[in-house]
Design a protein around this nucleic acid. Sequence first.
RNA 1: GGUACCGUGGCCGAGUGGCUAGGCGCUGGUCUGCAAAACCAUGUACAGCGGUUCGAAUCCGCUCGGUACCUCCA
Length: 489
Amino acid sequence: MSRSLQIYNTLSRKKEIFEPVKAPNVGMYVCGPTVYGDAHLGHARPAITFDIVFRYLMHIDYKVRYVRNITDVGHLENDADEGEDKIAKKARLEKLEPMEVVKFYTDRYHQNMDQLNVLHPSIEPVASGHIIEQIELIKSILKNGYAYESQGSVYFDVDKYGHDYNYGKLSGRKTEDLLENTRKLSGQDQKKNSFDFALWKKSDSKHIMHWPSPWSEGYPAWHLECSAMGEKYLGDKIDIHGGGMDLLFPHHESEIAQSNASRGHDPVKYWMHNNMITIDGQKMGKSLNNFITLDEFFTGNHDSLEKAYGPMTIRFFILQAHYRSTLDFSNEALQAAEKGMKKLLGIAEVIEKLQPSANTSVNIEVFHDKLYDAIDDDFNTPIAIAHLFDLSKIINQVNDGKASLTKSDIEKIKKLYSSFVYDILGLKNDFIDSKDDSLVSELMETILTLRRNAKDNKDWATADKIRDELAKLNISVKDTKDGADWSIN
RNA sequence: GGUACCGUGGCCGAGUGGCUAGGCGCUGGUCUGCAAAACCAUGUACAGCGGUUCGAAUCCGCUCGGUACCUCCA
């Protein structure tokens, strides 16, 4: 396949042709969740965005190693908590062992990701399992003179680094500006400059999770784990590093600095950042306390939700916007997405029923290129979905006898549809599963036969009664020329 | 304050110089016992003002409005 995939690289702020460092192998690292609470809609976005990247790279025959970490060390909370880490705090609040909290939320995160049909990464390293690697990384940064020890903690010397490298190249920041915009944070007095960031923090008595190190009994600081684990599993030049835009600065900027300070070169070729999900125009996030968890969406159990929205509705909703745009949540938008998704997925059944003709009356060849071009253009899933709707229209027309397709063209469409809808976009029909239940199917057949009889006798009251009662059970009955069809909503 | 980004028809959301994005909704029609689905038809939208250009939603400037990051965050 000689297509050319273009990826928007945050580093250059433009689209670049994707060329892996060592084709056909591709290394991809994505910042995963800190497991101290249920995953919310915001977590679904990077997971799904990079799931598409993962799926597509594999689809075009790259050998992909996808690493997505779990942050379980916890990191400093905001000012009010004075150094207590998130997971320790949660553990104290819930009277649990820290690792119990980690396990609980990791499992729940996995469950949510499975529901969203997000493929498992190749490796899912945990920060607490890589303390040694992180300590080694600090040692090498210290050895190269880009860090200093202060009262048992180790800080990155941004000023020193800035003389040899460009701190701010990813986020477009200048160290001079950073100096002027300092906020008062605890531990500032230990640092040479306010913009220096911690590599290792000495733990205080309140801190539950800590490990021995050459400098103190303490814990690794938050930018370090991604550098250490990324390098361990993907080498010192990673093809794609992804994450939310909110991680751009300081997290990813600091990762670049750490790699340069230890290895002398940038760690990543293509930086990709997904945009935020907003609610009422504002970012949905933990700190704003305006988030809705994925479980709440799936159950509808939240004041802002008019109804439950299934995992595929959430997935489709996210894919209908480009990953670099903000996406605004609303019930109206979700319900529109749900209808659109059902329509698109329902087409699979129509394709199966198509009757081949001797000739083809519509141009279907263009769809192959249009669909691949859309994804090749920085993973433009909304455009791909628009083309799939166009394709659906043709399929319906053929089904209605208003257009025709040959047997081989039907096969081509089936393959194209399956590649894009199932393999690349990762959608699946999760609302007709119970149709596979043979007992249900036979019961439905019996009921619909009774209704058929009523209709033959022009007993519309009984026929409508059956349809209405089934509707109450969320089963919709549609009369077609080949008899009644049913589906579960 | 610094640095980015955004403002598209009723809603969501693509598009970045000339060619109908798409979805949902609304309205009318075909079909149907009635519905539903499907199909057909239907919206001269691009925050405002000025400029560049044969031509701008798309480039430039200003104004207004909004967001994100600068502190844990997806």
